[in-house]
C-alpha cells in the first residue's frame, strides 16, 4: 500500500478512538449541560474521581467491568449530592453563580482525590488486553479501539432512547424548555434534575475508565481538561442532541489527531479548537442542534 495512504489511515483510526473517548465524556456532559445550561466545572473532576474509585475496586480484586459499573453508581451518587448541596440552593440566581459553586465542588473533589490517591499519575488495568487486534491489509486495528467506539455509540443510543421514549426523558425535555412551567404541570423537578446529574456522573465514569484503560494512565489533571474538551465537543455537536455530542466528540478527536500528524504537534490542541470555532461561526447552533427561539 502507498505509505502516504497507510499513514493517513493509521491516523484516522487513532483519531477515531481518541474522538470516541471525547464523545463518551461529551455525551454525559451534554446531558447535564443541556438541562440548565450550566457550565458544569465539577463534571471533569467527578469522572476522574469515579475512575480512581474504579481503580481502587480493581486493585482489591474485582473484575474491571464490575468495578466500572459500581464506580459509576458511586459517582452518580456523588453527582446527586453535588446537585443537592451546591446547585439547587442557587438555581434561581444568575447562571454564573452555580458555575462558581460547581468549581468549588470540583476543588473539593480534587483535593480528596489528591489526598487519598496521591498526585502522581498511575497506571490503569486494561479492559481487554492492550495491543491485541487484527491486521487489515497493511495496518492494525486494536480490539480496544473498536470497544471504545462501540461503547460510545451504545451510550449515545441508550441516552437518545431514554430521552425520547421514556417518561423520564420526556420530563427532562419539559424541564429543558421551562423549569417553572414543568413544575406547575406536576413534573417532580427536584427528582428529575438529580437523576440527570447522577446519569451524567455514571456515563462520565464509563468514559473515564475507557480513557484510562486505553492510555494506561490516570491522573488528577485529567479533570479540568476533560470538562473543557467535553464542553467544546458538545457545543460543536449542538447542545441537547446526543447524536450531536457523539459526532462532535469524534470530529474533535479527528481534528486534533490530523493536526498533530500533518501540521504540528505543538499546535494540535489549538487547531482542534480553531476547527470548532470555524464550524460554529458558520453554524452557530452546532452540527445537529435545533434552533432555539429566543423568548422575550
Amino acid at each position: 500500500m502507498n505509505p502516504e495512504l497507510e499513514y493517513f489511515l493509521n491516523q484516522l483510526i487513532n483519531g477515531l478512538s481518541l474522538g470516541s473517548m471525547y464523545a463518551m465524556i461529551a455525551v454525559g456532559y451534554s446531558m447535564v449541560y443541556s438541562l440548565l445550561y450550566l457550565i458544569n466545572f465539577a463534571h471533569g473532576d467527578l469522572y476522574v474521581f469515579g475512575t480512581f474509585i474504579a481503580l481502587m475496586f480493581c486493585t482489591s480484586g474485582m473484575p474491571i467491568v464490575a468495578a466500572m459499573i459500581l464506580a459509576g453508581f458511586v459517582a452518580g451518587l456523588i453527582g446527586m449530592t453535588i446537585e443537592r448541596t451546591v446547585y439547587r440552593p442557587v438555581r434561581g440566581a444568575s447562571r454564573m453563580v452555580p458555575m462558581i459553586s460547581a468549581l468549588g465542588a470540583a476543588f473539593v473533589l480534587r483535593t480528596i482525590a489528591q489526598v487519598t490517591w496521591g498526585t502522581e499519575p498511575k497506571s490503569f488495568p486494561a479492559l481487554i488486553s492492550r495491543g491485541a487486534g487484527f491486521t487489515l491489509g497493511e495496518f492494525r486495528i486494536q480490539y480496544q479501539q473498536i470497544l471504545v467506539l462501540a461503547v460510545a455509540a451504545i451510550a449515545m443510543l441508550v441516552l437518545t432512547w431514554v430521552m425520547e421514549k421514556t417518561k423520564l426523558g420526556k420530563a427532562t425535555q419539559c424541564i429543558m424548555q421551562d423549569i417553572t412551567t414543568a413544575s406547575l404541570m406536576g413534573i417532580p423537578v427536584n427528582k428529575i434534575i438529580p437523576l440527570i446529574y447522577g446519569l451524567g456522573g455514571f456515563f462520565g465514569v464509563v468514559g473515564g475508565v475507557l480513557f484510562s484503560s486505553y492510555y494506561n494512565i490516570i491522573s488528577i489533571d485529567m479533570g479540568m481538561w476533560g470538562t473543557i474538551k467535553a464542553w467544546a465537543a458538545a457545543m460543536l455537536g449542538g447542545v441537547g442532541s446526543f447524536y450531536g455530542s457523539f459526532f462532535g466528540g469524534i470530529l474533535f478527536g479527528l481534528a486534533e489527531t490530523f493536526a498533530g500528524a500533518y501540521i504540528s504537534t505543538g499546535f494540535k490542541e489549538a487547531i482542534g479548537y480553531v476547527v470548532i470555532v470555524i464550524i460554529l461561526l458558520f453554524k452557530p447552533t452546532g452540527l445537529f442542534g435545533k434552533k432555539r427561539a429566543k423568548k422575550v
Partner: peptide, 21 residues
C-alpha cells in the same frame, strides 16, 4: 498544605450559598 485547594473550594461554595450575589 494539600488541603488548601479543597478548603478554598468549601469557602467558595459557602460564599455562594450564603450570598449568591
Amino acid at each position: 498544605a494539600v488541603y488548601r485547594v479543597g478548603v478554598g473550594g468549601v469557602i467558595m461554595i459557602l460564599c455562594m450559598l450564603f450570598r449568591p450575589q
